[in-house]
Design a protein around this nucleic acid. Structure first.
Lengths: 188, 188
DNA sequence: GTACTAGTTGAACTATCGTTCAAGTATGTC
DNA sequence: GACATACTTGAACGATAGTTCAACTAGTAC
C-alpha cells in the first residue's frame, strides 16, 4: 500500500486525476482562474462533467490540486538551480525571464492561483512554497537576512512586471537587478 | 458641456456611478474579483440589477472603472509622499506596511484587479500607473536605473509577501529592506 | 403647459453553473 | 463462476449568471 499500487483501477484513476489537473491548468492559462468550472475542465479533458466531480468533489479541491501542481514544478526548477552549484543569480534570472516567453502561461497561472490564496487560507501554505525556495536560494547568495528578503521580494516583483508591464525580459538585465538587490560587493 | 454640469440629472447620475464603483470595490474586498456580478454589486449598492447595467453595460466596464478608482487613490498617496519632500523610503515603507492592517482590503483588491490586467490588455495601462509612480519616487532616491527598477520590483514583492505570506509588516523592517534594495551608500 | 432627456424599475429571456444520482463498465478478490 | 471495488456515464435538479426591454419617474428646455 501507500505509493506502490498494483491495482490497475487505482493506477488508471491516478492517471485520470493527473489528466484532469493538466486540463485545469490549460483552462487557467487560457481563460484565467475565473474560467475554471467543472464543465470547462471536463470539456478540455474530453470527459463527462460528472467525472470531474468524482475526482474533485468541489471546485476548491480542483484549484488546490492545480496550484499544487504548478508550484511543485516551479520549486523543482529552483531546487535544481540551487543543487547545480553554478551562478544562482544567473539561474534565477533566466527562470524569471522565461515568464516573458514560453513560461508566461505558467507564470500567469501561478499568479492567478496565488492571488486566490490570499483569500483562501487553505491555499496559502502551497503559495508560500516557492517563496521559501527562493529564500533558500537567497541564503546561498548572502548572509544578510535583509538582502535575502529583498531578493525574494524583487524576484516576485520582477515577474509581475514582466507579466503586466511588458517589461524587458533580458536575462542579463534581470540578473543585474537581482545583483543590485542582493548587494554590490557581497559574496558571489 | 465638459466638466461643469448644471444638469441635476447628470449630476445625480455621476453620483450613482460613483456609488456603484464603491459598491463594486466592497464586493471585491469581501469576495474577490470573482464575486463581482451585476447582481451582487447592485445588491451591495441597494439598487436594482438593471441600474448597474445601465451605467456599466458589461462587467468588464465595471471592473475597469473599479480598478481605475483604486489605483487612482493609491497613486495619489505616492504622489503625496513625493511632494511632501520627506524621507521617501520611509513614506513608501509605511504605505506598504499598511497592507497588513487597514489597507489590506484595498491592497488585495488592487492585486486581484491587476492580476486580471495581465490577461486583459484594456486594463494594463491602468495597472501600470502605480508602477510608474513608484518608479518616479525611485528616481528621487537614486540615479541608478537598476536601483530604481529594483525598488519598484521589491515594493511590489513586499506587498505581495504581506498579503500572502503574512510577512512581518513593521514599517521599519520594510524600510530597511527597501534601503538594501536601493543601495547601501547612495543618496538619501 | 408640451416635448425631450436622463435616470430608474421590475420582470423576463436564455445560458451556464455546482452538484447529485441511478445505472453501467472495467478491474481485482475469492 | 460470484462478489466487491473503482471508475465511468448521461441526465437531471435548483440556483444564479449576463443581458434585454417596455414602462415609469424626475429634471430640463421651450
Amino acid at each position: 500500500m501507500g505509493d506502490e499500487t498494483t491495482d490497475g483501477r487505482k493506477a488508471r484513476g491516478q492517471r485520470r486525476r493527473a489528466e484532469i489537473i493538466e486540463a485545469t491548468l490549460r483552462v487557467v492559462q487560457r481563460d484565467g482562474a475565473a474560467g475554471v468550472t467543472h464543465r470547462t475542465v471536463a470539456a478540455e479533458a474530453g470527459i463527462p462533467t460528472s467525472l470531474s466531480t468524482y475526482y474533485f468533489a468541489t471546485l476548491d479541491d480542483l484549484l488546490v490540486a492545480a496550484l499544487t501542481s504548478v508550484t511543485d514544478a516551479y520549486t523543482a526548477r529552483i531546487r535544481a538551480i540551487i543543487d547545480d552549484g553554478g551562478d544562482m543569480l544567473r539561474g534565477l534570472a533566466e527562470l524569471i525571464a522565461e515568464s516573458a516567453g514560453p513560461g508566461r502561461d505558467r507564470a500567469l497561472a501561478e499568479r492567478e492561483l496565488s492571488t486566490l490564496a490570499a483569500r483562501r487560507p487553505a491555499l496559502r501554505p502551497i503559495a508560500r512554497r516557492w517563496r521559501a525556495h527562493v529564500a533558500e536560494l537567497a541564503r546561498h547568495c548572502t548572509d544578510d537576512a535583509r538582502a535575502a528578503a529583498a531578493l525574494v521580494a524583487a524576484s516576485d516583483g520582477l515577474c509581475a512586471a514582466i507579466l503586466i508591464d511588458d517589461a524587458p525580459a533580458d536575462p542579463g538585465y534581470v540578473q543585474a537587478v537581482l545583483r543590485q538587490v542582493v548587494g554590490p560587493c557581497d559574496a558571489v
